[in-house]
């Protein structure tokens, strides 16, 4: 444990953690655009700067470890001025289209500009002027809105391990690019959308089927049904309609998803989707209740088992089921039906 003073109050915190981590635990909010606790500290956005007594310059809280006896100021005038200047600089090189921006409401740059009273980008001069990359079917990349926090690149590299995008050029001309800047469609991008999930601004946005604002939706946490990993997702629900999916933090996926879980949600609202079991009666499928459906299955199984024996059954289960479900399925076949004819699609 270490004793530190933050904003004139003394705290006991675990040693070995960063100032940012300590502040998060203590409920002191520090702005940051480039930090992600799953990644190595990057210290690029400089918003999380704090004043550490004895240090000449401001220190980034994301990359400075707690030392016993440390005295930290997180919101004094000097710190706030520096943050304001950083926000002003960022916004001066950013489109001023918050009214129509898809990210409005969920944009960290917008939130912090609001919090720190930065009303406009006051620096007049060269602004980014790039083509929007619309070549990916699932998301859009607008480099003009990019603030170069590098999260997308680092997630793609360190967590997703696809390395589809990287940083190109340097200095003011730095840009997040695919190799040779040929566009996302030409790269080895797998459309997992994990870059989209971490983008703090509107540079990477999912292509939406339906317009919505962040404040219009509620989030429903559920398990992705595409495979047995059991990724936790948040369905974005507007009214009674699912309009998007976001990865949830925590086990097992910790904020990551694949293309299916992330973007393959439109079946939910599809008109062909089955919402109740169907039973064929008189050559036509008719909606039935689950009880009716289960009864019919049990009846048919018993009938066939009696007439043709257990070995007349074979069971094939799906990789979309969990291990537990697969276990129960084989147990049902072996113990209940009495056959070893059971297999799994992943083995084929």
């Amino acid at each position: 444990m270490a004793e530190i003073t933050i904003n004139a109050k003394k705290y006991q915190v675990n040693s070995g953690i960063t100032i940012l981590e300590a502040c998060n635990r203590l409920g002191i909010s520090i702005p940051t655009l480039c930090h992600d606790d799953r990644l190595e500290p990057y210290a690029a956005c400089r918003l999380c700067v704090v004043e550490v007594k004895g240090k000449k310059n401001l220190q980034t809280s994301c990359s400075t470890k707690i030392r016993d006896g440390m005295v930290v100021e997180t919101h004094n005038k000097r710190v706030i001025n520096a943050r304001k200047e950083v926000l002003d600089l960022l916004f001066s090189n950013h489109p001023e289209d918050c009214l129509t921006c898809e990210k409005a409401g969920g944009c960290k740059l917008q939130d912090y500009c609001y919090e720190y009273g930065v009303e406009e980008g006051t620096y007049v001069g060269e602004k980014k002027d790039y083509h929007i990359d619309d070549s990916n079917p699932f998301y859009t990349y607008d480099p003009n809105k990019c603030i170069l926090c590098g999260k997308c690149v680092r997630v793609c590299d360190e967590l997703q391990c696809t390395n589809a995008i990287g940083l190109g050029n340097r200095g003011f001309d730095s840009k997040v690019v695919t190799p040779f800047d040929l566009g996302l469609a030409t790269s080895n991008c797998v459309s997992c959308g994990n870059c989209v999930a971490v983008c703090p601004v509107g540079a990477l946005t999912p292509k939406k089927k339906e317009k919505y604002r962040t404040w219009e939706i509620r989030k429903v946490k559920t398990t992705c049904s595409y495979c047995g990993v059991g990724c936790q997702i948040e369905l974005l629900v507007k009214g009674d309609k699912v309009v998007g999916v976001e990865p949830a933090r925590g086990t097992p996926n910790d904020g990551l998803l694949c293309v299916k879980g992330r973007f393959g949600y439109s079946f939910i609202n599809h008109s062909d989707r089955l919402k109740a079991p169907l039973i064929k009666r008189n050559g036509e499928f008719e909606e039935a209740t689950w009880e009716e459906a289960y009864d019919l299955i049990i009846d048919k199984i018993s009938e066939i088992k009696e007439e043709y024996g257990s070995e007349s059954f074979a069971g094939l289960t799906s990789a979309r089921c969990t291990n537990e479900e697969n276990y129960l399925f084989q147990k049902m076949f072996r113990a209940l039906i009495g056959t070893n004819n059971v297999d799994h699609c992943a083995r084929l």
């Binding site: 590299d157 390395n163 589809a164 995008i165 990287g166 940083l167 190109g168 050029n169 340097r170 690019v177 695919t178 190799p179 040779f180 790269s187 080895n188």
Partner: peptide, 25 residues
């Protein structure tokens, strides 16, 4: 040349995005 960068990427097993990043830095 792009073609050469691709060749280097394959030979060294370094992602092309990283090579392009270094080449433009």
């Amino acid at each position: 040349p792009i073609e050469i960068q691709k060749m280097i990427s394959k030979e060294l097993n370094i992602p092309l995005s990283e090579i392009y990043g270094v080449a433009t830095f």
